[in-house]
Structure formats: C-alpha cells, structure tokens
Design a protein around this nucleic acid. Structure first.
Lengths: 143, 143, 143, 143
DNA sequence: TTTT
DNA sequence: TTTT
C-alpha cells in the first residue's frame, strides 16, 4: 500500500513535457498548508513535487496554472539520478493518478483567469501544441 | 489535506533519538513494494523515510527492527537544512501519526526474533534506556 | 488503519446538535461524484453520511451549507441502533477529523452566499447560538 | 476524491460470485480495530463490507479466509435496492481496487492454515472452479 | 433519497 | 451481527 491524498495550490505554472513515444508528463509543485500555524516565523506549508502522465497530464496543463487549487491522489515515488556534479541525487515525489480541479474559475479550458497579470506561462506552449519529444523517459511511466 | 498511507518493511533497525526536552523521535526507512514489477532490472520498491514522535516512537523502537512489516499513516513533510558542504539540502519525508505492527511475531516486546543473526541494533540502546538528549530539535515536533 | 479522504458537495445544510455535556456534533451528507460517468442513467455520485465533533463541527456549521464543496478526512464507523419498528438498524458513516472548506466564497463567516434563494437553513439556529443539549450521546464521541 | 485505506481481519470466509458475463466478485467483511479501546464494554471494532472485482477478487478468494489480515485500498460506494419487504434499502460499502495479503502463512495458495478446524469454506467451491454465473450484475462493475 |  |  502506497497512497497519498493532497489538497493544495500550484506554486508555478505546470511544466509539460513529452517522451519520445509522445506520452505527456506534467510536473508541478503543490503548496499544502499545514493545519496549525507554526510559531516563530517557520515554514507553514509543505512544498510537494508531483508528476502526472498521459491524459490527466494534458487536462492538468490545460486547466491549471500558478495558484490553482487541486486535489491530488497518487503514490510516493523515490528514485535517484546522476547529478550535474557526478553525485547521486535522491528524489522523493508524488506520482498522481487523479488531479481534481477545485477552482471553479479554472474550468473553462483557458486556465485560471483570476490574475490576468500572471504571464509566467508561455502563451504558445510548444510542448502542448506540437507534442515535441523532450528529455523525459518512457521507462519512467508509472503504469 | 495532506495524507499518506503505507504498508512496507523496515530497511534497517529503527533509529531512536531524544530532543533536549526529552521528546522521543524514531526514524526509519520503509521499503514499499510496487504493485506491478517493472521490466528491465529497474527498482521495484520505493524507499520512504519516515519519522514518528513521542509514545508511538517508543512503541515503534520497542516492537520493530530491520524487516518488520508495518502500516503507517501520516503526512508528507518537506524541509531544508544546511548540508555539510554549505549547500541547502531539501528533504521529503513522512511524519507518521500511527504505526501499526503487522508481524505477529513482533508483538512480544522483544523486537522481531525471526532472524536471530540480525545483530545490527545495539543490544543496549543508550538513547532508549537513558533518554539522552541528542541533536534533534523540539521545533521539529509535528504538533 | 481506517482512513477516508473525500472531496464533495453538501446535499443539504449542516445539521448541528449538542450532547448533554455541550459537545457539538455536525452531521451532513456529501455528494461525491464518480470519476467516470456510468452508462444508462444510473447514479453518478455516492452520497456519504459524515459527522464531525467539537470545534471543527462548529466551524463546519458556520462556514458551510447546501452545495458547499469540502475536503473531508476521517475514518469509517459502523454502528447499530434500535429502529422505530424494533428492528436493529446498521449504519455506516464517516467520522471526520478535518473538514477543509474549498469554496472561497464561503469563507466570510456567513455561509455560502452564492444562492441567495436557498433559505433552507434556519436564520437563527437555536442549537448553534445557545448550545441546547439534544439527543446525541457523549458516548458517541470519537475520541 | 473518494479514497479508503483499511487494515483488518476478515470476519468470515470470502463470498465469491460470478456475473452473467463471468466477471468475478468477491465480498467480505473486515473487522478493523479502533485505535483506543472504548470504555465500558462498547464495540471496539468497525465491521466494514468490502467488495472486489475480477482478478484481485480471484486472488482474494484463493489466499484469504476467516481471520485473514489484509490491507484494502478503494472507495466508498452507496447504493440502494428493493428490500424483501418492498422498501428501499440503502447500503454503504467499500469497493476495493487492491487487497494486500498480510498473513505470510496465507501465501501458499491454500488459504490460511492457522486454524485447521475452520471448515466454513466449502472444500470445492463451484463458483471458483467452474465460473458459474450467479445473481450479481455486470452493471455493478466498478470500472 | 440527495450536490455542482 | 462479526476478526485477532
């Protein structure tokens, strides 16, 4: 058994990539507020890396952006890779199987319009529109 | 919402420490098998760092050791600290609120006797027997 | 281990009661939509009875009403009681420990204003304002 | 979001059925002990109806029987049917997608041998060996 | 006996 | 109408 359930807000726009075989992978970080405030100025949220694959990845990229509130269901994954300094880097992240969109304003296929000045997502995302293969690996597919 | 549920086996004996105020903290890593085997020699388990505090920490140290099967309920925590090379290290771990002991052989207060040659846990754990304060911090208490 | 996580909408206003000792109990039913529509006209949501106690009960009654979207964390409880026909009735419900309010419009202490014609909750709830003891039992307290 | 995670023991042997199309459905009740004992003789476990479909159903019937300890992952389902007195009966149960077998003695394909006097499961289960269609409905398939 |  |  390996299950995770989160409700949080995206710290940035969704990062969308495609594998060589054209499988979509969306990556984002969720800020999940802790229930009771910590005392003296310490961190009051956890920042949790999430990835989601295929059709739900495309929906997530289409309907969410920085600040979007979502519910996420999935599992914890640990993996390691060679860092740029040659050392092994260990990473812990959530592989989501469902992403539920909780901002009603989001659900028009345009992304969250609540902050029209938020221009951090490229207007024409080449990954999304052309399915260009990038550096993610089909071996990482969760199922 | 930030919830995690795991069933797995401990990769090592439990690491038990006490804060300056005498609060117990048990740390362990859980190997959680993935449901469907991956193909070509890749990792088939996730290795998830867990910590648990106070009374459940003491129970965990008493009843579990390397190889013990447990069910864990808790939340994902992210934090950062200064690494030994001065760089900021980010860490993701599970803070458990409940640990359920699933090896019936374990439940005699002696730890898991199934492998009598497993001597990796010190016979007299100075932390456990004397409550010696060590380097964990009361500010890290989860509640 | 006995854990439940839900995101859904309240089918009615929250039902608020107090035990003889003055403990608050809020009861509500959540409509949780199923991920994939069923085919021929069959039910497309589960309707799940939830209860929550004490301070979170009061917050739920204050911030939520019919249609409010919430995230709920808790456990499944089964119990039986004598029905009005003398037969034993078995009931399965969720005892919540956390209720997270997901409608931003809700969070002004006035309840959900999105449908001003929805008058089903009494304007002056005698339970909430006066802590009147009713027929719920302190023995049912979940902790 | 509609998620459930349980660890408990089966109160009886698994009830195995097949739909007209030959889909396996296993039904069982899990006794899930409550974390802290209740005081004066009141119930100290929840008894939760579970169902599981297809291949995991067959595995559950093969490896589990009365008393088997399992971990269950799934969702809460509510449904209603016409009772024998013509009245509508409402039922709440867990539809499992995974059942994890936690009794190591169970994992020999023979069922739990720990109580050899427990003969409540038929020695030759006609459902399991012949796939005989019975009264469960393919419309109830969870996916 | 149900929510958007 | 219940498990260890």
């Amino acid at each position: 058994m390996n299950n995770v359930q989160l409700i949080g807000r995206m710290t940035k726009d969704v990062d969308m990539k495609y594998t060589q075989n054209g499988n979509a992978v969306a990556t984002f970080t969720l800020a999940v507020n802790r229930p009771f405030k910590n005392n003296q100025g310490s961190q009051d949220a956890d920042f949790i890396r999430c990835q989601v694959w295929r059709k739900p990845a495309e929906n997530t990229a289409q309907y969410c952006r920085k600040g979007s509130q979502v519910g996420v269901t999935g599992r914890i994954q640990t993996r390691s890779f060679e860092g740029q300094d040659g050392k092994t880097v260990f990473i812990t992240e959530v592989v989501a199987d469902h992403v539920e969109f909780l901002d009603t304003r989001n659900q028009n296929g345009q992304g969250n319009q609540s902050n029209p000045n938020n221009q951090s997502r490229p207007q024409n995302n080449p990954y999304q529109s052309q399915g260009v293969p990038v550096d993610v690996n089909d071996d990482d597919l969760p199922f």
